[in-house]
């Protein structure tokens, strides 16, 4: 979880990712941010996030992103 928060914090230092739950629908993260996050997550965790994983529900909060990482690590 801390690794995910670090990646997000580097992208938007002004956002409190521990409390924010509406990152995509609240337009805090745009498409470019999401692609940057995907690249960082792929590199850091050795996973492969596909286009079908790019749903708002998977990126709306740090927990949701962490959940996606855990799911892909399990597969």
């Amino acid at each position: 979880m801390e690794e995910v928060l670090k990646i997000l914090g580097e992208l938007h230092p002004d956002v409190d990712f521990r409390t924010e739950k509406n990152l995509v629908e609240g337009e805090i993260l745009n498409s470019f941010d999401i692609i940057s996050i995907v690249g960082e997550l792929n590199n850091s965790f050795g996973i492969e996030i596909n286009a079908e994983d790019l749903l708002p529900a998977n990126f709306n909060s740090a927990e949701a992103i962490y959940g996606l990482v855990c799911r892909l690590l399990d597969e």
Binding site: S31, I35, V38, G39, N42, E48, I49, N50, A51, L54
Partner: peptide, 11 residues
């Protein structure tokens, strides 16, 4: 956009 940007080759 999403298909190309997260595609294996691009990454």
């Amino acid at each position: 956009f999403y298909t190309v940007s997260v595609g294996k080759r691009t990454q």
